[in-house]
Simulated scan of single mutants.
Amino acid sequence: MKKLIALVALAAAAVGAQAKDLVDTAVAAGNFKTLATALQAAGLVDTLKSKGPFTVFAPTDAAFAKVPKADLDALLKDKAKLTAVLTYHVVAGQVMAKDVKAGKVKTVQGSELTIGTTGGVTVDNAKVTATDIVADNGVIHVIDTVVLPK
């Protein structure tokens, strides 16, 4: 009987523990506040909470701080341009660090990112500083610079 009670308690705890999607995972990390604000302004939160899977090259708050304030403020007010920039950071499918290969990869925005693997992984002109932050609908790789579609 004690085993049955323990098993029921364990099952209840497992059901209560909810997996985190990409947005919740980024917010919980604490260094993606600007990204979270931008996703909300662009109306992309629900998209990145959907089933996916997605691979997100996520710029940190420090990466967004490199963008001149006037430019960032203007971007946050231009929903179409903001959406294009943010979806340029997203690739369909879940690509783990061990599977990354140099070359071009198509983004959700439609343009291609250039992935480099010499001297560390780069995405266009951004360095990947952390990899394989797994969410229940994809993976986040942290980048140190906001990348812009060409």
Rank of each mutant, 00 (worst) to 15 (best):
M1V: 14
K2E: 15
K2D: 15
K3N: 15
L4T: 14
L4Y: 13
I5W: 14
L7K: 14
V8Q: 13
L10G: 14
A11T: 13
A14V: 15
V15K: 13
V15Y: 13
A17V: 15
K20E: 15
V23P: 04
V27N: 02
A28T: 07
A28P: 07
A28N: 08
G30N: 04
F32S: 06
K33V: 04
T34V: 03
T34R: 06
T34H: 00
A36R: 06
A36E: 04
T37C: 03
T37N: 04
Q40S: 14
A41C: 01
A41V: 10
G43S: 09
G43C: 06
V45M: 03
D46S: 14
D46W: 12
D46R: 11
T47R: 10
L48S: 01
K51V: 13
G52M: 09
G52I: 08
P53R: 02
T55S: 02
A58W: 00
T60L: 00
T60W: 01
A62C: 00
A63Q: 02
F64A: 01
A65F: 07
K66E: 09
K66T: 10
V67A: 03
P68I: 05
A70C: 12
D71V: 05
L72Y: 01
A74I: 04
L76K: 02
D78P: 00
A80I: 09
A80F: 07
A80D: 09
K81I: 08
L82S: 12
L82F: 02
L82G: 03
T83Y: 02
A84Y: 00
A84I: 11
L86D: 01
T87W: 05
T87P: 00
T87Y: 08
Y88I: 05
Y88K: 12
Y88H: 09
H89K: 05
H89M: 07
H89L: 05
V90H: 11
V90N: 11
V91M: 04
V91N: 02
A92I: 04
Q94R: 15
M96H: 13
A97E: 13
A97S: 13
D99C: 05
D99A: 12
K101P: 03
V105P: 08
K106E: 14
T107L: 02
T107Q: 02
V108N: 05
Q109S: 01
Q109E: 08
G110V: 05
S111Q: 15
E112K: 10
E112H: 06
L113D: 03
L113C: 12
T114F: 12
T114H: 12
G116N: 03
T117V: 15
T118F: 13
G119E: 09
G120K: 10
V121N: 10
V121G: 06
V123I: 11
V123A: 06
V123Y: 07
V123N: 10
N125G: 14
A126R: 07
K127L: 06
T129L: 08
T129M: 08
T129F: 11
D132Q: 10
V134A: 09
V134M: 12
A135R: 02
D136A: 06
N137S: 11
N137E: 05
G138N: 09
V139M: 07
I140S: 07
I140C: 02
I140P: 03
H141L: 04
H141F: 05
V142N: 01
I143F: 06
D144I: 04
T145A: 08
T145F: 09
V146M: 01
V146G: 00
V147D: 10
V147W: 01
V147M: 04
L148N: 07
K150L: 14
